[in-house]
Write a protein that binds this DNA or RNA. Structure first.
Length: 427
RNA sequence: GCGAUCGUAGCUCAGUUGGUUAGAGCGCCGGUUUGUGGUACCGGAGGUCGGGGGUUCGAGACCCCUCGGUCGCCCCA
């Protein structure tokens, strides 16, 4: 007999507490998204390869080695989306969403990157995504970050010192960024031989990346590297100041991280990541994949897709990584419906249906005696049991038991009794 | 792509310096208990020890290859 096929490497079958945490993250995001009036969009999971190749930059790791690309039956190269932003930009252009500018949108779903899986990193992973398109004002950055900060708080993830901190940087406008980049190349080329192997390679491909190298050998040279601040134009400087003061006014805690860069080519001005503080519980839970939410301003992206220049800013957050931080979610308070004999099965079903229409969370089983059902119901985390008896039972038709005295459970018991009628309950 | 580490029942794991018929808990199935504030009792099914090759009188254990998991590097959410 042939073997059961295996799941694809780096994919996950999420179930149990992990699935509950995942759902909690998504539900919380949806709530906060509406609070900030970001409109929901649904996006295709795949696009023409060009969409990503042109917008992310041919030399980035994502494009050069991590894309899931394939030819369709017509011979066209398609790619499973490795991120949301490029596809959203494409949709913005092809659908003429300029008419809705400034457009605030949010979405979530699976992304695909061909990478070696490890803790907090998968080949199919899931992100939350929020974008503000067509707003070049620093206030847009501030609102977007305030939303991110509130999301984390509502997930129960502490922001600020000892928890998860917003690391903030500016990459300047296009000219500032290029001048800085050249200066960095010059600086590191002079000491190339002393850099780590990885950084020697980065020097050609992505010199900005040397700045956040973890290798000891690079540290002295990183410390002495030119800072972006020295290359910022007056406009870029003012923009960054406005973002910073806006965050302070909104009471969003942040930390300057002048070596924070982004992996993709399209970023300008603001760049940010929420990262757990070293030694925090969150840092332990995440392993070495520590960024839980990251993004920035991408004023150059639309042009790379042959659209008119349109300023935009956005972020994405890893749902799996957030789920690792929210802890176990206990199931909602519920009541087990237990028929006291086989003949009462239909009555028990009817009772459960009645209660559920009244909004009561009911646990049911499909076989086994009441004793075993009761045991199973408790291991499944219900708080109460409703025993269903014959209509003419001298002890009453229903008996409710095992309700503890927390407010939620008491209210369940009250609802059950009021729906079924107090006079039908016996001892 | 590179490195480390681990693969024994559906799940979590034990299995001595290589030595008869590979074990436990949970889960599952059947039964007992006539029932309920803390998960009872009895019984049962279930394993090509990831796969292939090798060493040996003998391999779950040692060696090689391979597939997969986990963690790290690179990179990223």
């Amino acid at each position: 007999m042939p073997k059961t096929p295996q799941a694809i490497r780096g994919t996950q079958d999420i179930f149990g507490p992990d699935a509950e945490s995942f759902a909690f993250v998504v539900e919380t995001f949806e709530r906060v998204r509406k609070l900030y009036r970001f409109r929901r969009i649904e996006m295709p999971v795949f696009e023409k390869t060009d969409v990503f190749a042109r917008s992310l930059g041919e030399t980035t790791d994502v494009v050069s080695k991590e894309m899931y690309s394939f030819d369709d039956r017509g011979g066209e190269s398609l790619t499973l989306r490795p991120e949301f932003t490029a596809g959203i930009a494409r949709a913005f252009l092809t659908n003429g969403w300029q008419q809705h500018v400034p457009l605030k949108v949010g979405t979530h779903g699976p992304l695909f990157r061909y990478e070696r899986p490890q803790k907090g990193r998968y080949r199919q992973f899931h992100q939350l995504d929020a974008e503000i398109i067509g707003a070049g004002e620093p206030q847009a950055d501030v609102e977007l970050l305030a939303m991110a900060d509130q999301l984390l708080r509502e997930l129960g993830i502490a922001t600020g010192p000892g928890g998860v901190t917003l690391h903030l940087n500016t990459l300047g406008d296009g000219t500032s960024r290029e001048a800085w980049r050249s200066a960095l190349i010059e600086h590191f080329r002079a000491v190339k031989g002393d850099l780590s192997d990885d950084s020697q390679e980065r020097l050609e491909k992505n010199p900005l990346r040397i700045l956040d190298s973890k290798d000891r050998r690079d540290r002295p040279f990183v410390a002495g590297a030119p800072k972006i601040d020295a290359f910022l134009s007056e406009d870029a400087l003012r923009f960054f100041d406005d973002v910073k003061s806006g965050l302070d006014a909104a009471d969003v805690k942040w930390k300057r991280a002048d070596s924070l860069v982004r992996g993709l080519d399209y970023y300008r001005h603001t760049a940010f990541e929420f990262i757990p503080d070293e030694g925090s519980a969150a840092a332990d839970a995440l392993g070495s994949q520590s960024t839980i939410l990251g993004g920035g301003r991408y004023d150059g992206l639309m042009e790379s897709l042959s659209g008119t220049a349109t300023p935009a800013v956005g972020w994405a957050a890893g749902i799996e990584r957030l789920a690792m931080l929210v802890g176990e979610k206990s199931p909602e308070a519920g009541v087990a419906i237990l028929p006291e004999s086989d003949e009462l099965e239909a009555k028990a079903s009817a009772t459960a249906a009645l209660l559920r229409r009244g909004g009561v969370n009911c646990w049911t089983a499909f076989k086994q005696n009441p004793k075993k059902r009761g045991i199973k119901a408790r291991t499944d985390g219900v708080n109460a049991a409703l025993y269903v008896r014959a209509t003419d039972d001298p002890d009453g038709e229903f008996k409710l038991t095992n309700v503890s005295d927390t407010a939620g459970e008491v209210s369940i018991s009250e609802r059950v009794i009021s729906i079924l009628g107090e006079d039908r309950f016996g001892g």
